[in-house]
Design a protein around this nucleic acid. Structure first.
Lengths: 334, 334
DNA sequence: TTGCAAAAGGTTAGCGTTAACTCATATAAT
DNA sequence: ATTATATGAGTTAACGCTAACCTTTTGCAA
């Protein structure tokens, strides 16, 4: 059994089958008028030669790659992975492949990625939790034919959007409200770094004042959305502010890092410190005590984003907006 | 500011710059002899027209896509994600993009994926923890120019390999030995489904007999490598065999599922039941009690696999083998 | 018998690049 | 002054496929 070095081309199949290339092409696509006999015969030759269409050639003429890109800040974050799974599943069924573009929480890299992707490589892009400011992001995506963003608003003509039901950043306010109702009075907040984090924080303080909840800027910190960052930030925050009786974190990974830091400092959870996370990753329900957090059906977020992208890829440039429900799931960490 | 509908091509740049297409091509690749003046001028025009090379056209003539595929059974499993991160990082630096092929633990889908990938789409493929038997896998990868497998042996001429230092399946024996030494006498084993799982199990029993450790086939189960499967399997196994005083799981996700099931049945860990996992995912160290497991530096596994693949992509078809160290990390679950 | 349409398939051209070759000019060596 | 050589380009022909148009054959109503 020798290894096939040269792949068969359409021309090879056509020659072997004694028909024109177009006939073979038509058989492959199931288009045009072909007699049943010819069809069968061509199919046999395709099998025999193990012909596989050359994607690049096809792309060159059709301008379609059947590939979409998923741009994400951190592929090890389970939140994004589950979304990705939804996206992958959806597009697999539709005959598309998914290219992964991991910016590794690095805005410069995200830019480079988005810029590269322009090279006729993908039919569309899903941008997940972009770390870029509008001023940076917009010029980069203007050139793409089809865009959908997750957790990020966009000028309507640029692409469709999947976001939370609650306005971005408002979840922390809900969390604070709940904590206040359960008797907590000094509430810390570990926000996630992103372009709009300062806006987030201001709104947070403003709303808390309206609710008559104690506000103290030094109780609030900002960190990267990783477990390690949450742990480091929690350590400092809790050491400097032993008066805190609750902490809200931007996402679960950070919340769990803070929880670890708290435990190491001898705090009992929830007796001494209540903790709330943000996206209900698997780990949140598995730690002791289980983490109170906001529900998010990540797989659905993925399929919704994929569906919206497919519409744009197929030429429907209407703006659509999907919202996913993110209610508070109360567990034993509060 | 109107949106550019037509992308600029090499021909456009050439015309605008008043040179031939080859000159532009040479400037882009930094090859051939070009005067500094021309180079600068062409660069300016490229900027001005926002020219980006068309990948498909380039691929058609060079036969290189600058894209590699990462085939993985479950993208939500943190074990694979961290490997993927290593792969992505490495190839990003080398100017390659990574295509994600998620088989979702479905062998048929893995086959389809591998078959599809043949269409001149990728320069190489990393196959991670394949769920296919050798008979299925080998014909599928024979056609690819460059292959590297992770946790899977391969005929040497087909591709390079990254595996554990301990022969596959032998870890469970090590775990059993350790458990025996710490006083456990009735050791359960939840193996992972894969093509070689029965071989695994037989070896396990054989080795245990040699060590004079009690063997009982009904203490051993097999399940999918997910938390849920581990939980379900653990529930049944522990209910039917309350005599068990230890369980070894194929990976951490399963171990944590079993742990949950055990806790729900009122077992104290490690007093009533010791548990050992398999790949040291983040969650393993975060649950209570922290899970005893085998170390695996997943990021390095990724970069090693990537490095080996790059060699093959670049034409060095020597067989290389990388082993990663997987020592037992003893935590409080045992 | 003519006419005409549907069926079945062929021809031509071009998608945007690059490899391989060719050609003109300037400079250096004889 | 003449030949060699390097420099700085340009030309031509693919790469493998498909869109758009064109041709032939056959069946059948008028």
């Amino acid at each position: 059994m020798t290894r096939k070095l040269q792949k068969a081309t359409l021309a090879d199949v056509a020659r072997e089958a004694g028909v024109s290339m177009m006939t073979v092409s038509r058989v492959i696509h199931g288009t045009g008028r072909i007699s049943e006999d010819t069809r069968q015969h061509v199919r046999q030759i395709i099998e025999k030669l193990e012909y596989r269409p050359n994607r690049a050639a096809r792309t060159l003429v059709t301008k379609r790659t059947n590939m979409i890109a998923f741009v994400v800040p951190d592929i090890t974050n389970p939140y994004f992975t589950e979304i990705l799974q939804g996206v992958e599943e959806f597009f697999w069924r539709e005959g598309y492949n998914v290219m992964l573009a991991n910016s590794n929480e690095n805005p410069e890299r995200e830019k480079a990625l988005l810029d590269q992707l322009e090279s006729t490589m993908v039919d569309g892009v899903i941008v997940c939790a972009s770390r870029l400011s509008d001023d940076e992001l917009i010029p980069l995506i203007e050139k793409h034919a089809a865009i959908v963003t997750v957790n990020r608003n966009l000028p309507h003509h640029l692409g469709s959007v999947v976001t939370t039901l609650h306005p971005r950043g408002y979840r922390a306010v809900l969390a604070a409200k709940y904590l206040y109702e359960t008797g907590r009075r000094r509430i810390g907040y570990v926000n996630l770094v992103r372009s709009i984090s300062s806006v987030n924080l201001e709104m947070f303080m403003h709303e808390l004042e309206d609710l008559n909840i104690a506000v103290n800027p030094s109780w609030y910190a900002t960190c990267k959305p990783t477990w390690q960052a949450g742990y480091d930030t929690g350590k400092v925050l809790l050491a400097q502010h032993p008066e805190l009786d609750a902490v809200i974190a931007g996402n679960d990974l950070v919340a769990l890092g803070v929880m670890r830091a708290a435990v190491e400092q001898g705090l009992r959870i929830p007796q001494d410190l209540a903790i709330i996370g943000g996206d209900d990753i698997l780990m949140a329900s598995q730690v002791t005590p289980p983490l109170t957090t906001f529900r998010s059906d990540k797989y659905s977020i993925g399929t919704m984003a994929a569906e919206l992208l497919l519409r744009r890829v197929e030429g429907d440039l209407t703006y659509y907006e999907h919202h996913y429900d993110d209610v508070l799931i109360i567990r034993e960490s509060t």
